[in-house]
C-alpha cells in the first residue's frame, strides 16, 4: 500500500512538474535571451485558464478551446510585450520588476471584474474523464496522464524548434550571448517578440491544462510564478533543458514531499513534533534544494551563458 502511494504521488509529482515546465520553459527563454524580469508570466498562465474556461463554456469543446487558446494567449503576450516591456529592455531590472508587478495587480483584479470573484467552472474533457489502472488496484485519472503526455510533446517541440530551426539557432545564440546576436544584425526586436509570444502560448497552454484540476481564480498564477523561478534558478537561466529537468525534480519533491514527509516523520519523531515540523519542513524542501544547488552551482545545473 505504502509503495503504491509513493508511486502514485510520484506520478502526481511528475504531472505537476510538467505544468511547471510549461510555465517556466517560456519564462526561462525570456529571462535568458531578453535579460528581462517578467513577473507577469504567472498572470499569462491565469489568463490562459480563464480563457479556457470561457471558451469551453461557449463551445462545449476542449479541443476548440485549445485552438482558440493559441491566438488569444499569443496576442495577449504580444500586446503586453509591446506596451510595457519593450520600452523597458534597456532600463534596469528594478523598472521591469515594478512594471510587471503592476500588470499582475491589473490582471488579478481585472479577472474579478470580468468573471466575478467565484472560481470558474471547468469540466474535465469527456474523452479523458476515466481512470486507468497503471498499477494494480490503483485507478489513476486519464486526464493527468494526458497532461504528462502534452508536456512531453511540448518539450519535444521546443527541442526541435531550438535544435533544428534557424530561429532556434538565434535563440540559442541569444541565450548565451545577446551582444553577438545584436552584432550579427538580427532583428532583435522581432526575436524578442517571437520569444515572448512563444512563452505566452506555453503559459496559456498550461492554464488550459490546469483549469480542470486546479481552481480557476484570481491569483492562481502567483504561486506558480515563484515555483517557476525556483525551477529556472535550479535549471539555469535560459536553458530549456535545465527547465525540464528542474521542473520534474521540483514537481516530485513538492508533491511527494508534502504528502509523505509528515507521514515519514511520524515514524521517527513523536506525533506532536511531526505534525508541527513536518508540514513546515515539507514546504521548505524545494527552497532548501534551490539553496543547495546555488551553493554548488551558482549558475544552475545547465548554465546557458558562457561569458
Amino acid at each position: 500500500m505504502s509503495t503504491l502511494l509513493v508511486l502514485e504521488q510520484t506520478l502526481n509529482g511528475i504531472q505537476f512538474g510538467v505544468f511547471l515546465f510549461l510555465i517556466s520553459a517560456g519564462l526561462t527563454l525570456v529571462l535568458g535571451i531578453m535579460n528581462v524580469v517578467n513577473l507577469a508570466h504567472g498572470a499569462l498562465f491565469m489568463m490562459g485558464a480563464y480563457f479556457a474556461s470561457t471558451f469551453v463554456a461557449w463551445t462545449g469543446s476542449f479541443f476548440i478551446a485549445f485552438l482558440l487558446i493559441i491566438p488569444s494567449s499569443v496576442i495577449l503576450g504580444i500586446v503586453i510585450e509591446m506596451l510595457t516591456l519593450r520600452p523597458l529592455y534597456l532600463r534596469d531590472h528594478m523598472d521591469q520588476v515594478l512594471a510587471t508587478f503592476g500588470l499582475i495587480l491589473f490582471f488579478n483584479e481585472g479577472v474579478k471584474l470580468v468573471w466575478g470573484v467565484d472560481p470558474q467552472p471547468m469540466p474535465t474533457p469527456e474523452l479523458f474523464t476515466g481512470n486507468v489502472e497503471i498499477f494494480p488496484d490503483a485507478p489513476y485519472p486519464v486526464f493527468r496522464l494526458f497532461i504528462i503526455g502534452v508536456g512531453l510533446l511540448v518539450a519535444a517541440v521546443i527541442y526541435f524548434l531550438i535544435a533544428r530551426t534557424k530561429v532556434g539557432m538565434l535563440i540559442r545564440a541569444g541565450a548565451s550571448n545577446t551582444q553577438m546576436i545584436r552584432a550579427m544584425g538580427v532583428n532583435i526586436r522581432f526575436l524578442n517578440t517571437f520569444v515572448f509570444g512563444l512563452g505566452a502560448f506555453f503559459a496559456g497552454l498550461a492554464g488550459l491544462m490546469a483549469a480542470p484540476i486546479i481552481s480557476v481564480e484570481s491569483g492562481m498564477g502567483d504561486e506558480m510564478l515563484i515555483l517557476a523561478f525556483v525551477v529556472i534558478v535550479i535549471g539555469g537561466i535560459g536553458s530549456v533543458r535545465g527547465a525540464l529537468v528542474a521542473s520534474v525534480i521540483i514537481g516530485v519533491f513538492e508533491v511527494v514531499g508534502r504528502s509523505m514527509l509528515p507521514i515519514a516523520m511520524q515514524q521517527i519523531f513523536p506525533l506532536e513534533i511531526a505534525q508541527t515540523v513536518g508540514p513546515a519542513l515539507a514546504s521548505m524542501l524545494i527552497y532548501i534544494l534551490m539553496a543547495g544547488v546555488l551553493f554548488f552551482k551558482p549558475q544552475g545545473l545547465f548554465p546557458a551563458r558562457t561569458g
Binding site: 524580469v37 523561478f229 534558478v233 508541527t276 513546515a280 515539507a282 514546504s283 546555488l294 551553493f295 551558482p298
Partner: peptide, 27 residues
Amino acid sequence: RTSGIYFIMITLAMTQLLFFIGISLET
C-alpha cells in the same frame, strides 16, 4: 553569491519560503 535577475528571483523565493513556514505553523 549571485547578481542581476538571479538575485531578484532568489530573494523572492526565499521570502515565499518564510511565508509557507508561517502558514504551516498551526500552533
